[in-house]
Amino acid sequence: MKKFLLYFVIISFSLSCNSEHNSESKSETSIAAEVTGEKQEFAIVIHGGAGTILKKNMTPEREAAYKAKLEEAIKVGYDILKNGGSSIDAVQKTINVMEDSPLFNAGKGAVFTNVETNELDASIMDGKTLNAGASAGTTTVKNPINLARAVMEQSEHVMLSGKGAEQFAEEQGFELVTPDYFFTQNRFDGLRRVKERQAQKEKDIDMESAAINFYDTDIKNSKFGTVGCAALDKNGNLAAGTSTGGMTNKRYGRIGDAPIIGAGTYANNATCAVSSTGWGEYFIRGMVAHDISALMEYKALSLKEAARIVIQDKLTKLGGTGGIIAVDKDGNMVMEFNTAGMYRAQMNATGDLTIGIYEK
């Protein structure tokens, strides 16, 4: 009987691992850790935006570019964790890779505002201390996630915005760039398209939805673009970070969920670390990132179940779209979303890499 049980456990474990490597599901998790109850020594998970991402609309070259960049980014953080580095360092350096890539709506690839500028937001949180930092509406800081960390570690504040945030960045010796650094032609063309559609709607006196003023089809129907990372290090410390260029054609200094602690980013060593991506207004109203942690803390739910409830039930019923990536204190990971796709990747302590783009 003992041999039979051992054989059953081994076969079950093998099937679970094969399922993880061969599927791109709506809720991908660190299956081996959940099935066996084995705690991962460290883990890292990232996203590059969620939205209507359909394989039929993706060229092989563009798909390969996204996968390559996701792999490059997550391996930077993975190497830091493998070598005993902190989750905070892993989160920051991983996000830097995506901020420096024009593929994502963060840093170099930021979308344009109504007045044809780029305004960037970011946040980071330390699960050990519950300390956090954020920056909003900056236009000259090359890597906003670096500024967010400095706000957390070098100031008594949690969030700085606009010119004040840029002054602080300069005092901290951060690399500042001229606004044209963030220019990419496809993002600028996207702004022009949404403005043209808006003008046509106003001319016809047929405004279908307020969303038409802000969402370029290239953004809404491919991704919302925010990037994020959540990580667990060998010391059991969790961290999460999020960075974004916000919403195409945004006006009036609009700020979404990315720099809002509890909405776009949250980390607590007692539960999990979370980074969000999607329609920011709904993530703020639902306090999505913290809500997942709260369900784990107060109801003793698993990360997988808490994420499912918050994204598939609460956020969806509210009318919001998007997703989250998260890792818990035992190294279990989830990538939960209610859209047709989310750029995402995860790695566990044994180096197993999963990259996903589409829902299935």
Score class of each variant (00 low, 15 high):
Lys3Ala: 14
Phe112Cys: 09
Leu301Pro: 03
Gly319Ile: 03
Thr59Asp: 08
Arg308Trp: 10
Arg193Asp: 06
Val115His: 14
Ala300His: 10
Glu156Thr: 13
Glu156Gly: 08
Lys69Trp: 07
Leu120His: 05
Thr321Leu: 15
Leu103Gly: 09
Ile74Cys: 04
Asp233Asn: 10
Asn269Lys: 08
His157Met: 15
Val334Trp: 08
Gln312Asp: 11
Arg251Gly: 14
Glu297Asp: 02
Ala270Val: 04
Ala136Trp: 02
Glu196Val: 13
Ser86Arg: 11
Lys201Tyr: 15
Pro60Thr: 11
Cys229Asp: 08
Phe168Thr: 04
Ser30Thr: 12
Ser155Ala: 01
Arg344Ser: 14
Tyr282Glu: 07
Glu72Ala: 14
Ile212Lys: 09
Ala150Asn: 15
Lys195Ser: 12
Gln185Cys: 03
Thr117Glu: 15
Met58Cys: 05
Leu54Pro: 04
Thr94Ala: 09
Gly228Met: 05
Ala345Val: 10
Gly127Lys: 13
Ala169Ser: 00
Ile44Tyr: 05
Asp206Tyr: 10
Gly280Arg: 00
Glu119Cys: 05
Ile53Gln: 12
Thr29Arg: 01
Thr271Ile: 00
Trp279Ala: 12
Thr226Asn: 03
Gln198Ser: 15
Ala306Ile: 00
Gly280Pro: 06
Gln198Gly: 14
Gly236Pro: 13
Asp79Ile: 10
Lys93Ser: 11
Gly241Leu: 11
Glu336Asn: 15
Met342Lys: 02
Tyr252Ala: 14
Phe4Val: 11
Asn118Thr: 14
Asp257Gln: 15
Met333Lys: 00
Glu116Gln: 14
Thr52Tyr: 14
Trp279Ile: 12
Thr217Asn: 14
Ile355Leu: 06
Glu119Arg: 04
Pro144Gln: 11
Asn18Met: 15
Cys229Pro: 05
Lys195Arg: 13
Lys108Ala: 07
Val327Trp: 05
Gly356Ala: 00
Arg192Gly: 07
Asn268Met: 10
Phe13Glu: 11
Ser86Gln: 11
Ala73Arg: 09
Ala106Leu: 01
Ile292Leu: 00
Asn249Leu: 02
Thr316Met: 13
Gly280Thr: 00
Thr354Lys: 12
Ala65His: 09
Ile309Asn: 00
Gly228Ala: 05
Met335Asp: 08
Ser275Cys: 07
Gly127Met: 09
Ala110Gly: 15
Thr242Trp: 00
Ser135Gln: 14
Phe174Cys: 06
Leu81Pro: 01
Asn146Phe: 11
Glu171Tyr: 09
Arg193Ala: 06
Glu170Thr: 07
Phe42Glu: 02
Ile124Glu: 00
